[in-house]
């Protein structure tokens, strides 16, 4: 799949933002009040909001974005939109109360936490539901998105042990996602033969493409990354997103400076991991084009 910058930014930033908001809502990061609450709430809302704004850039018709709220009964994207909006609707009053009135509202906080997690979950489900992309249609997609939100949130919140736990889970989830995804389409029993229904006749191979010119499908769905390139990038992503942040916040080190370095490193690593999440994902339509 084409790794669109807007979507990569959106999913990584909003994931971390919603993670932080969830922690703030549950009180896991304490219940800061007054100006002490400003920074964490602003960070959480800012990241989540920036991510949502970035996602609008992915739309062909951003001016119609409001329509995306209508189909929550069937569409995970619509659910995500509704949940994200609901999260904001709940978190913003809590944030306002916490900062302006110095009176956190735990009820709203908890509700916001649940909604934030659900938002991240539905973002993940947009991808995890896609039968067309075997690499995504796997529990590890949900796991990666949730663990990344947790890791991002805990790092931003400066919570050492939860952060270490979340990073550990993220590490496992990422590794599992990569391992599971590395079954090529062929191992899922799919190839040009099954895609065309001609497999029973013999080995099927595209002779010439349907068109020599470009197309949306080719650009969006039939993106190819070099294997070596991907391996190196995975290593880098894993180091940045998991290993280095964990090392930085591990006991013996730490302090706010460590978190201040670890959090951006982690986000950088997640951007790389998310790039791979898209770039490595093969869409079954590629079978018609000799990919997969």
């Amino acid at each position: 799949m084409h790794p669109a910058v807007s979507i990569i930014l959106f999913t990584v930033l909003s994931g971390a933002g919603f993670g932080l908001l969830a922690l703030l809502g549950t009180g896991a990061a304490g219940r800061p009040a007054g100006w002490a609450a400003f920074v964490p709430f602003a960070l959480g809302l800012g990241l989540a909001g920036a991510g949502l704004v970035a996602s609008a850039f992915h739309l062909g018709r951003p001016e119609r974005a409001l329509r995306a709220f209508t189909q929550w009964r069937t569409s995970w994207l619509s659910r995500e939109a509704v949940l994200a909006a609901a999260t904001f609707a709940v978190v913003v009053p809590n944030a306002a109360a916490s900062v302006l009135l110095a009176r956190p509202l735990p009820g709203l906080g908890w509700a916001g936490a649940v909604l934030a997690v659900a938002t991240v979950g539905s973002t993940a489900m947009i991808y995890a539901q896609m039968r067309t992309v075997p690499r995504w249609r796997h529990w590890t997609t949900l796991a990666v998105f949730l663990a990344a939100a947790a890791a991002g949130g805990t790092l931003l919140a400066g919570l050492r042990w939860p952060a270490l736990a979340a990073l550990g889970l993220l590490g496992i989830a990422l590794a599992a996602h990569w391992r599971a995804g590395d079954r090529p389409l062929g191992r899922a029993g799919q190839d040009a033969g099954t895609a065309t229904g001609l497999g029973a006749l013999g080995r099927v191979r595209p002779l010439s493409p349907a068109h020599t010119g470009g197309s949306y499908v080719l650009k969006e769905m039939v993106h190819v990354v070099g294997r070596r390139h991907a391996r190196r990038l995975r290593l880098l992503a894993f180091l940045l997103a998991v290993v280095l942040p964990a090392a930085l916040v591990a006991p013996g080190w730490g302090g706010w400076l460590a978190f201040a370095i670890a959090a951006p490193l982690h986000l950088g690593g997640m951007l790389a991991a998310r790039w791979l999440f898209f770039a490595e994902a093969e869409h079954v339509v590629g079978l018609y084009y000799g990919r997969g």
Binding site: H58, G60, A65, T132, V217, Y288
Partner: peptide
Amino acid sequence: AACIGCGLCAWACPYGARELDGAERVM
């Protein structure tokens, strides 16, 4: 007139049957 051009439907289609128009920016 209602399409926001999010591209999700094209992702969901196994057959590559949907194309986002480069100028109109709708599916």
